[in-house]
Write a protein that binds this DNA or RNA. Structure first.
Length: 336
DNA sequence: AAACAGCGCAACCGCGAACCA
DNA sequence: TTGGTTCGCGGTTGCGCTGTT
């Protein structure tokens, strides 16, 4: 069965021979690919256009990088995947010389297994339920939550738990990073931030998770911390951005940064919001403990928001950078 | 040495988006 | 606006290599 684009043609399938590669390479180098559907005929190949395109993109393109993935590339894949999910083509755009197919294969054959072995769900990048009680994966020391992983310290993983009490402090990771705990509860609209063994305890309130991150970067890197801003879809925190600040600035930054966005006036969004609120009430009635006001929660009711992937795609992602540098990523935009 | 299993990678398939007449 | 064609993407398959029994 051939592709519908070339079902009338005599189609060869399977691995490409060096002769076929040469024909395709010569043709594209001379004429460009133009319409892929016409390439096989013009190049004298008994292949379909799709197959030619794939062969060119994944193998013959001159700008392809060969060889194993570097540690930096690996980190980039993990970081971008945490934000975008299985958007291999978009992930590959952040890795010059790598193809979506290559990234996808590397993920499935290598990274995925590493994450699972570390007790992380490769889809959500959160700790797997079975791993939350596993001391090898979590340093549960003095009630501190300490998420670490093989990519630490360049990657940040949320501690996704509804059992974080108010007096639970958040450990500063070995690198000067702080993670904010979050829960899947879509209702509670505040977050407690505390620093282990430091007196600074700040609580900020926001009405909507679609926060404007408006704080300018503080350049001094004296005891910097990272505030992780969680976003998500369908009550599942899936997107985070990280920012470094001097520790002394924490309270001010928290107070200034978490600015609520006014609710959408779009009727469709308003309907979604009301539906979410109804759903939250159901959750609240069924499980009141989830909404314990002393818990550390981040509102994750993002269903009414549309994250601007196109915008983000056009920027260089700072995710996972050890030393944070300001970038357009700070201007993450939402279409509400 | 042969059989088998596991793995990585290249290629295919189907679907939706984009394009165009 | 519509319908046909082409493109691009993500999921899946299958082949070949390698290690193990």
């Amino acid at each position: 069965m051939g592709h519908h684009c070339c079902s009338k043609q005599k189609i060869k399938r399977g691995l490409w021979s060096p002769e076929e590669d040469e024909k395709l390479l010569n043709h594209i180098n001379t004429f460009g690919h133009g319409s892929w559907s016409s390439v096989p005929k013009l190049a004298g190949l008994e292949r379909c256009g799709k197959s030619c395109r794939l062969r060119w993109i994944n193998y013959l393109r001159p700008d392809l990088k060969r060889g194993p993935f570097s540690e930096i590339e690996e980190r980039t894949i993990v970081d971008v995947h945490r934000i975008l999910g299985n958007k291999w083509a978009q992930i590959a755009k952040h890795l010059p010389g790598r193809t979506d197919n290559e990234v996808k294969n590397f993920w499935n054959s290598c990274i995925k297994k590493k994450l699972i072995a570390q007790g992380f769900d490769p889809n959500t990048h959160n700790l797997l339920p079975s791993s939350k009680a596993n001391p090898s994966n979590i340093n549960n020391n003095n009630n501190n939550i300490h998420a670490c992983n093989m990519f630490s310290p360049s990657s940040f993983f949320s501690v996704n738990s509804s059992h974080v009490s108010a007096d639970t402090s958040i450990d500063i990771l070995e690198a000067p990073y702080l993670t904010l705990p979050s829960t899947s509860s879509p209702h509670t609209n505040h977050v407690d931030i505390s620093l282990h063994e430091r007196s600074t305890i700040s609580t900020c309130e926001f009405q909507n998770p679609n926060m404007v991150w408006s704080t300018t970067l503080v350049q001094e890197q004296i005891n910097p911390i990272v505030l992780t801003e969680f976003m998500g879809i369908n009550n599942v925190p899936t997107i985070s951005t990280s920012h470094s600040y001097p520790i002394s600035e924490l309270e001010n930054i928290v107070n200034e940064s978490f600015q609520p966005i006014t609710k959408s006036t779009n009727p469709k969004d308003m309907l979604l919001q009301s539906q979410q609120e109804e759903a939250c009430e159901v959750v609240e009635n069924e499980n009141p403990s989830v909404l314990n006001g002393a818990q550390t929660n981040i509102d994750a009711s993002f269903g009414s928001s549309n994250f601007d992937l196109d915008f983000m795609e056009s920027t260089e992602l700072p995710c996972g950078m050890y030393n944070y540098q300001p970038s357009p990523m700070d201007q993450l935009t939402w279409n509400g």
